[in-house]
Design a protein around this nucleic acid. Structure first.
Lengths: 127, 127
DNA sequence: TCCATATGGTTTCCAAAAGATACTTAACAC
DNA sequence: GTGTTAAGTATCTTTTGGAAACCATATGGA
C-alpha cells in the first residue's frame, strides 16, 4: 500500500491488511474450513470421522484445514496417545461464536439464490 | 461427491455444491471483491476512482472483480459512450443487502482480534 | 506366522487457479 | 504527439488443492 490508508473521498479503510472482514474471511474462505466447522458444530469428531463425513477432502488438505483452524483458536485438537492414536477435534467457543455469524449469510444465500441465478443467466445471455 | 449427500451421523449437508454459505463466499472471497463492495457501498464510483481508492489492485484484476460482481447481480455497470468512455459502477440492492450481512462479521473480527492473535502466538510458540 | 486393515498423519509430485506485470488498443481532447 | 479512460492480452509466479505413496503402531483373521 503506497498511498493513504484511508480513502480521501469516503474515509473508509481500504487496506486489505486492516479490513476486518477480510481478516475473518482469510481464515475460513478456503474450500473446506466452513464444512469442517459445520461438522464439528454438530458434535466433536475424530479425524477419520471427518474424513468419512466429507469424503471429497484429501487427508493432506483436511490436516491442513484443521491445523489452520486450530492455529486461529477456532478448533481444539486433543491427542490421546493410544495405539492406534486417537485425535479428537471440537469447536472452541471462539469457533462456535464465529460459526453462528454465518447463519445470516446462509439465510441470505437461500433467500436470494433465485435472484442471483437470474442475474447470472441475464449476464450470460447478454454476452 | 461419491457418497451420500447428507452425513449419516448428523444429517447436515456436506456437499460443497449445496452448502449455502459456500455459495455466497465463493462469489466474494477473492482478494478484492469485499473491498470493492465497501467502496461502492459508500457511493457509486467510476473505474478509475476505484483504482485510486484501492491502489494495490491491478487494472486487469479490478476488471475481473467487477465483472464477477456484475454477473452475480451485486453491482451495476453503466456505460456512458462518451470519449473518453465513462463507466459508473454502483451497488445493486442485492449487493447492498449482502454487504449488510458482513457487518456482524466485521464486528466479530474487531471484538475477537486479540483472542485470535493470542491463539496464533500460543500455537506458534508450541511448534 | 503372515497378511490385511485402521489410525493419523507426512512427503512428493502435479495440475489448476489466482494474481502480478507489462504491453497493446481505441477514441478523443489539447 | 501526449495524455486520459477503460479495457484486453500475454506471460510469469504464487497459491491452492488433489493423488498417491509411505510410515509406525496395533488389532483381527486364516
Amino acid at each position: 500500500m503506497t498511498l493513504d490508508e484511508t480513502s480521501k473521498t469516503a474515509g473508509i479503510s481500504l487496506d486489505p491488511a486492516t479490513c476486518p472482514v477480510r481478516q475473518v474471511l482469510d481464515g475460513v474462505s478456503d474450500k473446506w474450513s466452513i464444512l469442517v466447522m459445520a461438522a464439528l458444530h454438530v458434535t466433536p469428531r475424530r479425524f477419520s470421522e471427518l474424513r468419512r463425513d466429507i469424503p471429497d477432502v484429501s487427508q493432506k488438505v483436511l490436516t491442513q484445514t484443521l491445523r489452520k483452524l486450530e492455529r486461529n483458536g477456532l478448533v481444539d485438537r486433543k491427542v490421546t496417545p493410544t495405539a492406534p492414536p486417537r485425535v479428537d477435534y471440537s469447536l472452541q467457543p471462539l469457533g462456535q461464536s464465529l460459526f453462528a455469524r454465518f447463519s445470516p449469510l446462509a439465510a441470505w444465500a437461500i433467500e436470494n439464490r433465485a435472484e442471483i441465478d437470474a442475474a447470472r443467466s441475464a449476464y450470460d445471455a447478454r454476452s
